[in-house]
């Protein structure tokens, strides 16, 4: 499955990047392709392109704040989780995303 994700947290210095690492590891471990955009103190990094958004089966928003450029994902199957949940139990988040991605 192709998974894309946006990670963001209020201060943008730690949780964002922990969630990124945790989700990446869990997704790869379950055989998925994943690309994660981080919206932190350094701004937007690893930005998702229009094509990547179009090709993705599912979007994971692991955020504690508003997503910048949320309109890019309009109409995509998506799940929304607390950024802390993505850090603590990334496998459960990926499993949830798998279910969502299979719905279509």
């Amino acid at each position: 499955m192709k998974i894309i994700s946006v990670c963001a947290c209020p201060t943008g210095i730690a949780h964002t990047y922990m969630a990124q690492a945790a989700l990446e590891k869990a997704a790869l471990g379950r055989g998925h392709d994943i690309k994660i955009e981080t919206q932190g103190a350094m701004g937007i990094e690893n930005e998702l392109s229009m094509q990547e958004v179009a090709e993705a089966n599912v979007v994971i928003f692991a955020v504690g704040v508003n997503v910048e450029g949320e309109e890019r994902f309009h109409g995509k199957p998506s799940i929304m989780v607390e950024v802390g949940k993505a850090i603590e139990n990334p496998v459960a988040v990926i499993e949830k995303a798998e279910k969502k991605g299979k719905e279509i």
Binding site: A14, M18, A22, K25, G40, A41, I87
Partner: peptide, 26 residues
């Protein structure tokens, strides 16, 4: 315990903090 200045911090420092955060997931 992490401290960062209110005004925009040096990007290098933020990058290091981000890397350490990712590293803690290892």
């Amino acid at each position: 315990l992490i401290g960062v200045p209110e005004e925009k911090a040096n990007d290098l420092h933020l990058k290091i903090l981000a890397n350490i955060s990712r590293g803690l997931m290892n």
